[in-house]
Simulated assay, not measured.
Amino acid sequence: MTGAEQETRTESATADREIVISRVIDAPRELVFEAFTEVRHLSRWWGPEGFTTTTKSFEFRVGGVWDFVMHGPDGTDYSEWITWTRIVPPERIELLHGESPDDPNAFESVLTFAPNDAGTRIVMRTVFPTRQLRDEAAEKYHAIEAGQQTLANLAAYVTEGARKGAQG
């Protein structure tokens, strides 16, 4: 079985448990990737519209952890925890995301960064442990809209940085 056949088989096996969001960003791939590597960047754009992020700890390396709180526009705080499971600069980041290290409902995300003309196509593929958890994330927490808003915030942040870099 070729790698592509294996990947297709894996994708079809998880299709009912996943959410896939993509966006083309008008900035170089290295810059888009870098926005994930340092907390000073992440804290400026991470999360959907109206959310802010407070970082407790951050270490961007395989096995490293980002422990943070997202503050919703209604004042609700959401404890979040990410561990980086694979990093291939500047093309791929794999992570496990939950409320804490022992969260049984933690989900896996794979982010890919591909050149797209002068910009970057980012694809965020999230696989939940069960279909029910995927459905709950989509319906109760509006995960698809929130993911689209998060990538829009990323796009605004890096394109502003790219413009400033071109001017500087």
Results as ranks from 00 to 15, higher is better:
Asn116Val: 01
Asp102Asn: 08
Val110Arg: 13
Ala106Lys: 06
Glu94Tyr: 02
Leu95Arg: 03
Val88Cys: 04
Thr85Met: 09
Glu99Leu: 01
Pro115His: 04
Arg92Ser: 05
Phe113Ala: 05
Thr120Met: 00
Ala106Ser: 15
Gly98Met: 00
Pro90Ser: 02
Trp81Gly: 06
Trp81Tyr: 14
Ala118Glu: 14
Phe107Gln: 07
Asn105Ala: 15
Thr85Val: 07
Pro101Gly: 10
Arg86Ile: 04
Pro101Gln: 08
Ala114Pro: 00
Arg92Ala: 13
Asp103Gly: 03
Arg92Ile: 05
Ile93Leu: 13
Glu91Thr: 15
Asn116Leu: 01
Glu94Asn: 13
Ile93Gln: 11
Asn105Met: 09
Ala118Val: 15
Phe113Asn: 12
His97Ser: 06
Phe107Cys: 04
Glu91Gly: 15
Asp103Ala: 01
Gly98Glu: 02
Ala118Pro: 00
Glu99Arg: 15
Arg121Glu: 13
Trp84Val: 09
Arg92Thr: 08
Ala118Phe: 11
Pro89His: 05
Phe113Cys: 08
Leu96Val: 15
Ser100Ile: 07
Thr120His: 12
Pro104Lys: 06
Glu108Val: 11
Glu108Ala: 14
Val88Gln: 08
Glu94Val: 07
Ile87Glu: 02
Trp81Asn: 06
Ala114Asp: 10
Pro101His: 09
Ile82Asp: 05
Ala114Met: 03
Phe113Leu: 06
Thr83Tyr: 10
Leu111Thr: 08
Val88Trp: 00
Thr85Ser: 13
Leu96Ala: 11
Thr85Asp: 06
Pro115Gly: 03
Pro115Tyr: 00
Val110Glu: 13
Ala114Gly: 02
Asn105Pro: 00
Trp84Ala: 04
Ile87Arg: 01
Ala106Glu: 04
Thr120Cys: 14
Val88Glu: 15
Trp81Met: 03
Glu99Tyr: 09
Ile93Cys: 07
Arg92Gly: 02
Leu95Met: 09
Gly98Pro: 06
Gly119Trp: 02
Trp84Gly: 02
Leu111Trp: 12
Asp103Pro: 03
Ile82Leu: 11
Pro115Ser: 09
Leu96Trp: 12
Pro115Met: 01
Ile122Asn: 06
Leu95Tyr: 08
Asp103Arg: 02
Glu99Phe: 14
Pro89Ala: 12
Ala118Asp: 15
Leu95Ser: 14
Glu99Ile: 07
Pro115Arg: 13
Ala114Lys: 12
Glu80Thr: 13
Pro90Ala: 12
Ala118Lys: 14
Asp117Lys: 11
Arg92Tyr: 05
Ser109Ala: 15
Pro104Ala: 02
Glu91Lys: 15
Trp84Thr: 03
Glu80Val: 03
Ile93Gly: 02
Pro90Asp: 05
Ala106Phe: 05
Glu94Ser: 10
Asp103Gln: 00
Asn116Ile: 02
His97Trp: 10
Leu96Arg: 15
Ala114Cys: 04
Ser109Cys: 13
Phe113Arg: 12
Thr120Ile: 08
